[in-house]
Design a protein around this nucleic acid. Structure first.
Length: 596
RNA sequence: GGGGGCGUAGUUGAGUUGGUUACAACAUCGCCCUGUCACGGCGAAGGUCGACGGUUCGAGCCCGUUCGCUCCCGCCA
């Protein structure tokens, strides 16, 4: 470790988790918060706390005015000076790092008294305050060691990412926060311009075009740990502003990107040096899991069994089987646990939000079919199901999702799978990474009767698809694979990217397919289309969701735990009360009219 | 935009079919206590049951509206 300034020039000589037996006899100064005050009559103790830990202050030989202890209300900031001494043999605390010693206080100063009658909650101890109070008084919540540890983790992880990337020849470049509105994609946060009445900047949803322009500018290998902004509704893992590790490289193949990602994952998640991601195509992963971001730490794989039920007497199966629908089956071996009738009926509620009408089931008990839809299942069909099963056979429960809409079947099967994993406690510790490739380039937007970019409009079709792409036949475009990939960990999409379009004619065609007129394209992306004309290296990259990575490392399922000052699910900041109404003076200066 | 859950002393929770003075822990205040460290003991104070309206002899509990937090669907190129 290189020399540091350490505590030189600070009011304190040590932090609150530092003192050990070796310090006995030395004169030290500690600063921190009053964590606990214990008055045993003739004997007084204060536990002084900072983010590092606790030290016990003893007042056994305190010569000053004891009335000062009255001012040491909980959460006050105090300074204590004295000599470190070994605790009596019978008074040591093994549960504390500093439990072998205590500070024999000779001088005590209350630097800032806490108004204990007004404090909304105490950050120490086992009781957590409600979400509302925690966010309104976030600085109190941040005093909790748990949140301080996460901030530390965040900082360390960012440093590790930078180390890897810089070591691989990348440079970090800052791109503008005040940028141009892009109506494609998510809603923009918009910032009015005072100098240009009636004009607005937009905060970037991602630095996508900028990093591609850096490649065109010859930057070669770029990264940035950057903030992105999206004005969409929130979720447990989604905030209106979030952080990405944004990466772009010139002349890559997918193999390069994947190797780089593996190298980073090894460092960020402390994996084995020879770690390789499991690879799965988009089609494959959806077929097996019903989702493009499955948690693969447990099984419950699904199989498509539509063909077994074309002659079924059971309408729920026969209807999709005869009308291009889909039936998916999932087997829960008896060894995995069992489900009560109540749980099986409850599955209806699980699939409902996804458009599913219910979940059909039957049981196999001692080789006999019972319950649910068993009377529609012949021994032959069971034999066929078992021969296709990857999850075992014999006694257990078979579940079925059937619908004429394939998306409903996949989404329902995924929801059931995730529910069962929790219910049957199948989820193991650790991380399971997946590299999902060959995403479709486009998806058909039924409502607006047009194509939308599955990833974004700069994603390249697979090389062998260029000819068909430029022809632009709808049936060719429908399932066209793209040079796009996602990194999935434990059910979270922690990153995604693509090789980009670097040909002007291909990019033009993409905008055309997305239903944009040449005028739209020119107005929104004219600068970018132009740039593609003047010598563009093939390039590609990806972005990691930094907050989600920290969530996984911190083992929390709430994104607000990993952000110092998070917003609520209605995108407000309870602490500062943002957003707030602009003042009349601001509106006037910005030439904005406002309906109050 | 749609659906579910939650809202009770400063804080976290309990509160039965709608029925007397809404209960506990931590925090606060007072008294006692020389080795505690989740200190202990005795006592005190602390409530618009999120807000508004309704049903009822009577509402923390039932109904409606609304606000806030939260989870999900849509959305998130």
């Amino acid at each position: 470790m290189a020399d540091t300034i350490g505590n030189f020039g600070l009011l304190r000589s040590h932090h609150c988790a530092e003192l050990r037996a070796e310090h006995v006899g030395s004169k030290v100064t500690l600063c921190g918060w009053v964590n606990k005050y214990r008055d045993l009559g003739g004997l007084h103790f204060i536990d002084i706390r900072d983010k590092h830990g606790l030290t016990q202050l003893s007042f056994e030989e305190f010569k000053g005015d004891f009335s000062i202890l009255k001012k040491c209300s909980l959460e006050s900031v105090i300074l204590a000076r004295g000599v470190v001494r070994e605790r009596p043999e019978n008074a040591r605390n093994n549960k504390m790092d500093t439990g072998a010693v205590e500070l024999l206080v000779s001088e005590l100063e209350v630097l800032s008294q806490c108004d204990i009658d007004a404090i909304p909650f105490l950050p120490m101890g086992p009781i957590d305050a409600s979400e509302v109070l925690r966010l309104k008084y976030r600085y109190l919540d941040l005093r909790r060691p748990h949140l301080q540890k996460i901030l530390q983790l965040r900082s360390t992880t960012a440093l590790r990412a930078r180390e890897i990337l810089i070591n691989e020849g990348f440079i970090e470049v800052e791109t503008p926060i005040l940028y141009k509105s892009t109506p494609e994609g998510a809603r923009d946060y918009v910032v009015p311009s005072r100098v240009h009445p009636g004009h607005v900047y937009a905060l970037p949803q991602s630095p996508q075009t900028l990093k591609q322009l850096l490649m065109i500018g010859g930057t070669d290998k770029y990264f940035q740990i950057c903030r992105c902004f999206r004005d969409e509704d929130l979720r447990a893992d989604r905030q209106p502003e979030f952080t990405q590790i944004d990466i772009e490289v010139s002349f890559p193949t997918q193999e390069y990107i994947k190797s780089l990602v593996e190298k980073m994952l090894i460092r960020l998640f402390d994996l084995e040096a020879n770690f390789k991601m499991t690879m799965m195509s988009y089609d494959e992963v959806v077929k097996l899991y019903g989702s493009d971001k499955p948690d693969v730490r447990y099984g419950l794989k699904q199989m498509i069994v539509t063909d077994l039920f074309t002659d079924s007497e059971f309408g729920v199966f026969a209807n999709p089987a005869k009308n291009n629908g889909m039936i998916k089956a999932m087997f829960i071996p008896a060894s995995m646990g069992t489900l009560a009738r109540k749980d099986l009926d409850g599955l209806t509620d699980i699939v409902k939000p996804h458009g599913g009408k219910g979940v059909a089931f039957f049981k196999v008990e001692k080789g006999e079919l019972t319950g649910g839809v068993s009377k529609f299942i012949s021994k032959e069909i069971l034999r066929e199901l078992e021969s296709r099963s990857t999850e075992g056979k014999g006694d257990g429960i078979w579940l079925f999702n059937a619908d004429t809409d394939h998306d409903v079947v996949h989404a329902s099967a995924d929801a059931v799978r995730r529910f069962l994993a929790r219910k049957l406690e199948l989820i193991k510790e650790g991380y399971a990474f997946l590299w999902v490739y060959d995403f479709p380039l486009l998806e058909w937007d039924k409502e607006n009767n047009r194509f939308a970019a599955r990833h974004h409009p700069f994603t390249s079709p697979k090389k062998d698809q260029y000819e068909k792409f430029l022809k632009g036949q709808k049936e060719d475009l429908m399932n066209m694979p793209a040079e796009a990939y996602d990194i999935v960990c434990n059910g979270y999409e922690i990153g995604g990217g693509s090789l980009r379009i670097y040909r002007n004619d291909v990019q033009d065609q993409m905008f055309k397919i997305l239903g944009m007129t040449p005028e739209d394209t020119k107005r929104q992306f004219g600068f970018f289309i132009d740039a593609l004309k003047f010598g563009t290296p093939p390039h590609g990259g990806l972005a990691f969701g930094f907050d989600r990575i920290i969530m996984l490392l911190a083992k929390t399922d709430s994104i607000s735990d990993v952000i110092a000052f998070p917003k609520t699910t209605s995108a407000t900041d309870l602490m500062s009360q943002a957003p707030s109404e602009p003042s009349d003076a601001q509106l006037k200066e910005l030439h904005f009219k406002w309906d109050r």
